[in-house]
């Protein structure tokens, strides 16, 4: 058994594992009850699934410049996925679409009034700030 065959088999395993994680996220998006649990499931193909697929792709291609591109994609995804998830979760928090009865700990509960007040103030500020730049 040559090294090429071994690398191909490992790459096939990585690709199938990544696809299975994507399928798990698809099922979870349908079945999970609220936004926060769906975000939990959505992070699986975005980080681990994508890294597994990129690893499988790199093991098949095996040239330096292609692996550099794949590493770039992986690093960028690792850097941006938490930021996007944080912004979505922070916007969703003070609304009713989050099932608070499912939360084990809610560390922001003591500040919910301040967050709501902040949320009602902010649009005027952002509108005033963005109005001159828009024209």
């Amino acid at each position: 058994m040559t090294l090429d065959a071994v690398l191909d088999i490992v790459a096939a395993g990585c690709l199938i594992a990544g696809a299975l994680l994507s399928l798990a996220a698809g099922v979870a998006l349908i079945r999970f009850p609220d936004l926060l649990s769906r975000m939990h499931a959505a992070a699986k193909p975005q980080v681990l699934g994508l890294l597994l697929v990129l690893l499988g792709c790199a093991l098949r291609l095996r040239t330096g410049v292609d692996i550099t591109t794949l590493v770039l994609v992986g690093v960028f995804q690792l850097a941006t996925a938490p930021v996007a998830a944080h912004m979505v979760g922070r916007v969703a928090y003070p609304h009713d679409e989050i099932r608070r009865d499912l939360l084990l700990t809610d560390e922001l509960a003591a500040h919910i009034d301040r967050i709501r007040a902040d949320r009602t103030d902010r649009p005027e500020v952002s509108d005033a700030a963005s109005a001159p730049g828009r024209g």
Binding site: L15, A19, G49, L50, V53, L54, C57, L70
Partner: peptide, 12 residues
């Protein structure tokens, strides 16, 4: 993410 996985699989 699924589309990225599909394109990477095609490349592989």
């Amino acid at each position: 993410a699924i589309i990225v996985a599909a394109i990477a699989t095609e490349a592989a």
